[in-house]
Design a protein around this nucleic acid. Sequence first.
DNA 1: GTAGCTGCAAATTCTTTGCAGTTGT
DNA 2: ACAACTGCAAAGAATTTGCAGCTAC
Lengths: 147, 147
Amino acid sequence: MERNTRQRSAIREAIAQADRPLLPQEVLDAAQQAVPGLGIATVYRNLKMLVEEGALQPVNLPGENPRFELVGHRHHHHFQCRQCQRVFDVHACPGDLGGLAPQGFTVEDHDLTLYGRCKDCVPSNDKPARRKTAEPGGHTHTHPRRC
Amino acid sequence: MERNTRQRSAIREAIAQADRPLLPQEVLDAAQQAVPGLGIATVYRNLKMLVEEGALQPVNLPGENPRFELVGHRHHHHFQCRQCQRVFDVHACPGDLGGLAPQGFTVEDHDLTLYGRCKDCVPSNDKPARRKTAEPGGHTHTHPRRC
DNA sequence: GTAGCTGCAAATTCTTTGCAGTTGT
DNA sequence: ACAACTGCAAAGAATTTGCAGCTAC
């Protein structure tokens, strides 16, 4: 049976409080406010459990490590700010994209990511809104051109 | 100055021959046909160089390790087969998506990934077309719902 | 009381880097 | 000749797993 530990509650709560998908490290930082001794392995284990039991859903963006958010947000996409690197939900969708694939291919689903500046990082503002996740050396950022 | 080694030629050639973006390991496998002793570190080093000099571009899909393809394909998107996991180019685009983001957000670019079955993996066929990249244990596959 | 959970440390996977030897030009 | 390049092995970063002790029920 599944238990209700301080750790699990703190992790679930950290994600519920956030207004955007969080990285495992961000979940750890937030949940440690409530449970100081909390370890990163426990965060990973609980994120996996919570996803499996349907409480959370992973948010995978191109070239980014997985983030996590509550389920219940129905089908939606994401926006990543090029300045502060944070990710936000976008509750809009271009609609049916079945016609875009080559002949003979069957399209079942799609993922869409928008890039630009978030409300807190208007183009003139050069300092990130809040913290900026340290840029891992190996990250090759794709900068897709305009359509 | 930049040199012309057997290794670099083999790597460039492997990618030029492929009809789809390749993972570093796939590049290694292909290039080793021409240069048996080739090491994976050399592949990574050359992929990085070739990207920096503008010969290659990285292809990042959600939750996937980076793949590489030749540049020159103008703005395009990608299709991943749910059966064989291979990735293909899609030379179509839904167009302007600037209207989808929340108030105050500025959209500069976008990434789109389609999921479904490729031509070789029609829905009735349960065996992957060719090789299937071993499924890394940690991979949380997002299965976005229909729009 | 005991199965489930936790923290720590070791293991994995993917990628990068240090180094000594090799090779284009 | 000599700087660029290569293979190997060690180092890194993100994530997973083994294990002995802890704790919710």
